[in-house]
Design a protein around this nucleic acid. Structure first.
Length: 453
RNA sequence: GUGGCUAUAGCUCAGUCGGUAGAGCGCCUGGUUGUGGUCCAGGAGGUCGCCGGUUCAAGCCCGGUUAGCCACCCCA
């Protein structure tokens, strides 16, 4: 018998962990729907050429392969056309979905999408090969008003904030604007904007000195240019002084450009609105770069306060050309929550817990197998009134039946008889009860997620 | 894909200088009149990841391999 071993990067929760995950998903969905996002699901696979366009060559895509096709396939040379790959995010499939259904959708189109995605990268703490993302996006036809770039991160902040009462830490949404960075870099005379962003992104990990060295050695920047880039990246804050500080820095280096001004205008609007609608949550941070090359405006990253080591649990940005069929383009903005990353940390850090791993609120004991029908009838009466009930598997000694409930966190055990009785096994209280009217306290009706003490 | 660390009971881990295996927790049974948790007594459970080598003798030393963890890369 081959030994069963865990498969790295493919997380599976125990039932009580699933209760936590399901709660997170429920809260996200409820908030998204409150804001008018329509739910969709796209297929798990996309043609490989769709997934790999936009120069996403570094993406580790799982390719789908029919076992029976092995013989037929090796001869065929070009294997990009019909090959299928599992999607590695929900944004690219959504862009395809928009193009495919453009004639039937109403724009601006707001949608949420919660699905598994797959990436072949090496797994680590909080990094998986199979994980769940919860996305919201808005796309417009031809154009998309800027105010959506303000609203989307605020919707996310609200959704994640709605989890605070079960013990999820506060979140901080870090925002930047591609136009600011690009405008500034070009003003400095730097050509390789992408390369500089990539190095700047390493700031937290390797420090300013190393990044400066890399900018000179890898991107061919002068020491002055590198210094200016680092000065820009050092700017952060949640009020309008951020914008004036960037302006001052640009003036100092003669790096003012039209693009920079446009970006600063947008960033200012975002900070201002966020300060009013979600004080203290949104922070401008000019070192936020984002690796994905299709972002053109605002970019977002979100960290759990106190768990910055986990990295971003929710990120996204504005994209203008992702969904384009040549004639029509559908610019969009969206963010994606790494649900698996979030839940894995919540559970591993013991920040919260489920009250139980089974739905059952009441276990109906069985006195002896001859009277099992009596117990079944009690359970049926409870279920008919919406009370999750289960019947003991065997007519074991009552001590064992209570233990059965205790092991599963079931709070109540029902003893049928001349006079029915129900026992709260946490307190030991046992009272006479009628299957037709008795109900558990509301907080014991269903499993709940509660903060760890 | 690259590098480092690790692999012993269901879980967390000991195991000395090489001498064929241990603890805690969990699990099962019992402690009389079928009401659990505490306590007491007893019990089950391990091809020491896998393959090979050195040795009289390998959990321990050496080589390989697989898997896991961490870091890089990249990202949720």
């Amino acid at each position: 018998m081959a030994r069963i071993t865990p498969l790295s990067g493919f997380p599976e929760w125990l039932p009580d962990g699933r209760v936590v995950e399901q709660h997170v998903l429920d809260v996200l969905r409820r908030t998204f729907e409150l804001h008018g996002f329509a739910g969709i699901e796209t297929r798990a696979v996309e043609p490989l050429d769709q997934l790999l366009r936009k120069g996403e060559t570094s993406k580790e895509v799982y390719v789908l392969h029919r076992l029976q096709a092995e013989d037929e396939e090796d001869a065929t040379a070009p294997r990009s056309e019909k090959q299928l790959g599992l999607h590695f995010d929900l944004t690219v499939p959504f862009a395809r979905y928009v193009l495919e259904n453009a004639g039937r959708l109403a724009f601006p189109f707001k949608r949420y999408q919660i699905q598994k995605v797959w990436r072949g990268e090496r797994p680590q703490d909080g990094r998986f090969r199979e994980f769940t993302q919860a996305d919201i996006d808005v796309v417009g036809a031809g154009e998309l008003p800027y105010h959506y770039e303000v609203e989307l991160p605020l919707v996310m902040a609200e959704a994640l904030g709605a989890l605070r009462d079960v013990g999820v830490p506060a979140v901080r949404v870090l925002v930047n604007n591609r136009k600011v960075a690009e405008g500034f870099y070009r003003g400095l005379g730097i050509e390789d904007v992408e390369g500089v962003l990539r190095q700047i992104d390493k700031l937290d990990k390797i420090g300013a000195e190393q990044v400066a060295a890399l900018l000179v050695s890898e991107q061919g920047a002068t020491a002055q240019q590198a210094g200016a880039c680092l000065d820009l990246a050092a700017i952060s804050g949640s009020d309008a002084t951020v914008v004036s500080r960037v302006r001052a820095l640009a003036d100092e280096h003669g790096a003012g450009t039209e693009l920079l001004d446009e970006g600063l205008g947008e960033l200012a609007a975002l900070i201002e609105a966020a300060a009013a609608r979600a004080p203290g949550v949104v922070v401008a941070d000019l070192k936020i770069a984002r690796g994905l090359d299709y972002y053109t405006g605002s970019v977002y990253e979100t960290v759990l306060v106190g768990h910055e080591d986990l990295g971003s649990i929710c990120s996204g940005g504005r994209y203008d050309t992702l969904a384009s069929d040549g004639k029509n383009t559908y610019p969009g903005v969206g963010l994606s929550v790494g649900v698996s990353r979030l839940v894995s940390r919540l559970l591993s850090a013991g920040l919260l817990a489920a009250t139980r791993g089974v739905p059952t609120s009441v276990l109906v004991a069985v006195s002896d197998e001859e009277s099992r029908a009596t117990s079944d009838a009690v359970a049926a009466a409870l279920r008919a009134r919406g009370i999750p009930a289960d019947v003991a598997p065997t007519a074991a000694k009552f001590g064992k039946q209570i233990k059965f409930a205790d092991r599963r966190g079931i709070p109540f055990v029902w003893f049928p008889g001349e006079e029915h009785q129900v026992k709260d096994i946490r307190t030991g209280d046992q009272v006479a009860a009628d299957p037709a009217v008795w109900a558990p306290p509301a907080e014991d009706l269903h499993p709940r997620v509660v903060p760890a003490v």
